[in-house]
Design a protein around this nucleic acid. Structure first.
Lengths: 346, 346
DNA sequence: TGGACCGATTGTAACGTTACACAGCTAAGG
DNA sequence: CCTTAGCTGTGTAACGTTACAATCGGTCCA
């Protein structure tokens, strides 16, 4: 069931059928109707998308590479905000949106190679990800969110180091035994509690920059980073953060400040503190990251940023014409609330 | 830059190049390396996805049609749960995931016709959506979540009518002046407050069935449905529900029970009651729908269902072999908490 | 009445890949 | 030593569409 079939049935040429579907205004009203009726009669399903994309050279689809198990992307509210921002642009430009999951396995590059897309947005990934090469090779417009930077690819990333230093300072001020609650340090997502973590050893650049910022904040307050426990979680949800915080804070551990890499994690810490009867902020200061809806309600000191706008920015940078690889450093700000000790009036 | 080019460079035939990328195990180790090196040297980006899909007849991609502005899909936690369920299956089967937004406009059918996908899952849509025809026409395996039912397409939907009757009964028991907080009744998303709404007039089948169930619950308790105000919201978030509830409950309105179509909406009602100093459940009974994480914390009586499992089910039914159109009615249950008056012990 | 012009339609030639069937060659088995 | 089987590599022929340039009647104006 192809265009020539429909053409025969309608008594026109194949090209007329093609135009009827692809640029209807180019075909006379009467002819158009005749063609559509013939198509209807034969049950012609419309132009084959593969053939069309082969011939036209474009797919009208934007690809989003998620450096995460696809499932996590929908569990993480920040990731969905980011996707929401991207989708705004897709709707504007009449584009489809294809999600390309990347798991760290060997087929990743193949998936990226084979995805039928015209441009690519990469959600935070590791530094030497072969997927980056695969994208570069295809020569599609592409942008990385969060990092790593790569020549030939755009980059949209806030200054995580500076922001972490700001929020870390808010968390650690007046503390003697601070701790950090971190995203996974590697794709294996191994949970651990470690001291003396070298920030530079983290392969995810967002995580690396934040650790660096926290370390600088500690140093700036005269605290020794080498003694700061970094609690690394496998999953980044509230329940797991709560469990980890119970272990971390239990039994006179002395920990009196926790800087967490997301609001969700920080809320888990707050709940643990509540269960342990630890007073916030006098006995324990807590900070989050993102300033999602729950942060305000909980009085959480945190970093405000708009993942939604960042998603929009990423999408525009690859979809709109004149998309030379962009470098953008979106805004962020420290939001001080009641989960930290009042510090110097900055 | 095509396969013949690479073939020439590597001194082999085009077919060998094709096999090297598509079925590497069919090619001798040494040859494979030679081909890959040649490809590298020429900067060959890998097989053209369009050409491949044209020839192979499949795209290794699952399409999800969202009967919503794409942006809403990511704002609605239940929708993201549903997508998370679908994505589990995609990862399992090594499939990509393409989102196809549908806005009610005339290009909708075209978008569906042209999407490069092997199967389709439709997220709740209206009854006589031309998109359904477009999907049927393409002859792809397809399933509708929530409805409407359509021969040739699968259907995964809980018994919304029965569930609404159960939760409506919990909400309205002991009430004299109940009200309903509803999703939009049409694609235009017009907000309104109406009495005597004919449930059958709602074009979204989920909404229709729930209204029917609420009406039956009212009737079962001797309450006159024609007098029950149905508050229709444009957007389905907590803030808007709160605003609507403030209007609905203010100034001695007498409204003493509200059945809301989602937890988010119900939470808005609870907040409004709190601000107005109305006691729950003695002066006002409130019910939600979905039993999301916030419902338990708020003591909300609600309908529990797993959108995630439903997403998984939908995806499996179209992706796994032997996918005759499925009819499935996933489980749900009424969760009684403290936002409703104690009723008969069921 | 001739020419210019315009809209509608058409034929041809790719677009880049892979299924299929077959040919060579080597190794194992009788 | 001949047969069989298994592994690699190859030529041919689509897959279904659309860009491009050309054609064909008309209509309009000078």
């Amino acid at each position: 069931m192809t265009m020539p079939d429909v053409a025969r049935e309608a008594g026109v040429s194949a090209m007329t059928v093609s135009y009827t579907f692809g640029r209807p205004e180019r075909v006379a009203e009467a002819t158009r109707r005749r063609v559509l009726e013939a198509a209807e009669r034969l049950g012609y399903p419309g132009p084959h998308p593969g053939a069309r994309s082969l011939r036209r050279g474009r797919t009208a689809t934007l690809g989003v590479v998620l450096g995460e198990h696809l499932t996590y992307a929908f569990d993480d509210p920040q990731a969905t905000q980011f996707l929401a921002g991207i989708s705004t642009v897709c709707v504007e430009h009449e584009l489809g949106l294809t999600l390309i999951p990347v798991t760290g396995g060997p087929q990743d590059a193949a998936r990226v190679r084979e995805a039928a897309v015209d441009a690519v947005v990469l959600w935070t990934t590791v530094d030497h990800d072969p997927v980056l090469d695969a994208v570069l090779r295809r020569g599609l417009p592409a942008v990385v969110h969060g990092g790593p930077a790569r020549s030939g690819l755009g980059l949209v990333a806030i200054d995580d180091r500076a922001a972490a230093m700001a929020v870390g300072t808010a968390a650690f001020t007046g503390a003697r035994a601070p701790a950090v609650l971190s995203f996974p340090l590697d794709r294996a997502r191994r949970p651990a509690v470690r001291q003396g973590v070298d920030p530079d050893s983290a392969p995810f650049s967002v995580t690396r920059h934040r650790l660096r910022g926290y370390a600088e904040a500690a140093a700036g307050l005269g605290l020794e980073w080498g003694r700061v426990p970094v609690v690394v979680l496998a999953r980044t949800d509230r329940a797991e953060a709560e469990a980890a915080a119970l272990r971390l804070l239990g039994e006179g551990s002395g920990v009196d400040a926790v800087a967490a890499m997301s609001d969700e994690l920080a809320l888990g810490v707050l709940r643990a503190a509540d269960r342990l009867g630890i007073a916030v902020p006098s006995e324990l200061a807590v900070t989050g990251w993102d300033d999602g809806p729950a942060a305000a309600a909980a009085g959480l000191t945190t970093i405000a940023q708009s993942l939604r706008e960042q998603g929009e920015l990423c999408a525009r940078s690859v979809v709109e014409p004149g998309s030379a690889p962009t470098r953008a450093s979106p805004p962020w700000r420290l939001v001080r609330r009641t989960s930290t000790r009042p510090g110097h009036p900055a």
